[in-house]
């Protein structure tokens, strides 16, 4: 290159500035968004008088639990959304770094780095791996890792990944929420197949949720599976495996540990209005059976009333 041209390029280099970048967009498209990992439990239609006289409290509980899970995921992915909405502070061919002070927590500085793992030329974009980490430090102290993630796929909406949130470090940095659990929360997701799956392993009770390995699988038609833990007001804990149709009808198999220490299972079905249509409650825990000593509560409704679920 002639020296004059170099000098001109040098001058123009000094004057060229901005964030116009296709690569930046390619990087942030690999990051999951809050809505990508939501649990989507169908909303039942308006509830009439139920034939068995009772609505399924677990059908309603599934929505409540799903909402809490979504809120927990949003709390984590909200940080990623904020990162996505801003421009990187440093760029290298396969690395973007965002560094900024945490506006909510004075004295805390956050650094996020997203590395595009090298692959063979011509590789399937859907198999592109990414490594993502968010570190933070307070008042010039050491950086602590508050989030680590590994994604696969050029676009998170159709990719897979695992996200680990270290609540012990957020607590050490004093940026934790009042209901945050301790330990590490793992979020696994796979949005690339026919069914969206999200599994959240909560190491300790917190975020309004019990310590449990929550699992959600949603089909494109709106039907799906949802495994969750549900404590009731009487101190009973229900571990549910539910399956539901797109309209909201469903069936559940529950493992129960009562407040008195008894264990057993309950099976039930409900319709699109969340009314119970079938119930097997040998522990007499449900309101319908509450007045009947266990295990004498008869089968309520008909198994044929149960919906076909995935």
């Amino acid at each position: 290159m002639p020296s004059g041209f170099k000098a001109l390029a040098g001058v123009l280099l000094l004057t060229a500035c901005g964030n116009l970048s296709n690569e930046d967009i390619a990087f942030v498209e690999a990051l999951p968004r809050t809505g990508d990992l939501h649990v989507r439990v169908p909303v039942q239609s308006a509830q009439p008088a139920c034939a068995l006289g009772e609505a399924s409290q677990w059908a309603v509980g599934a929505r409540d639990t799903g909402d809490k899970l979504n809120a927990a995921v949003d709390a984590v992915l909200g940080i990623i959304d904020a990162i996505r909405a801003s421009s990187p502070t440093s760029r290298k061919p396969d690395l973007r770094v965002w560094s900024f002070p945490d506006q909510k927590h004075p004295g805390v500085r956050i650094e996020a780095s997203l590395l595009r793992v090298a692959t063979q030329p011509g590789s399937d974009p859907a198999a592109q791996p990414w490594s993502f980490a968010i570190d933070a430090r307070r008042d010039g102290g050491p950086f602590l890792e508050i989030l680590y993630a590994y994604f696969v796929g050029a676009e998170a909406r159709s990719g897979q990944g695992v996200i680990a949130i270290n609540f012990d470090d957020t607590r050490a940095l004093q940026i934790n929420g009042p209901t945050d659990p301790t330990g590490v929360m793992m979020v696994h997701y796979d949005l690339g197949g026919p069914a969206r799956t999200v599994r959240i392993e909560l190491g300790a009770t917190g975020l309004g949720l019990s310590q449990f390995s929550y699992f959600y699988s949603g089909n494109p038609d709106g039907s799906g599976h949802f495994d969750y833990l549900f404590p009731d007001a009487q101190g009973n804990r229900f571990s549910l495996q539910t399956a539901f149709t797109a309209a909201g009808a469903g069936r559940a198999h529950m493992a129960v540990r009562t407040s008195s220490g008894a264990t057993g299972t309950i099976d039930q079905c409900w319709d699109a209005t969340a009314c119970l249509t079938y119930l097997v409650d040998p522990l007499s825990i449900t309101p319908i059976c509450a007045a009947i000593p266990a295990p004498l509560c008869p089968v309520q409704g008909s198994l044929s009333a149960c919906p076909a679920v995935p």
Binding site: L8, T15, A16, G18, L20, D24, V28, R84, A85, S87
Partner: peptide, 21 residues
């Protein structure tokens, strides 16, 4: 130069400034 992404409010708008002979 500046640009934004229609329907993608999650993406930041971008810009670029330079001198061009």
């Amino acid at each position: 130069l500046f640009r934004s992404f229609s329907g993608r409010s999650d993406l930041p708008s971008q810009n670029f400034f330079t001198l061009t002979p």
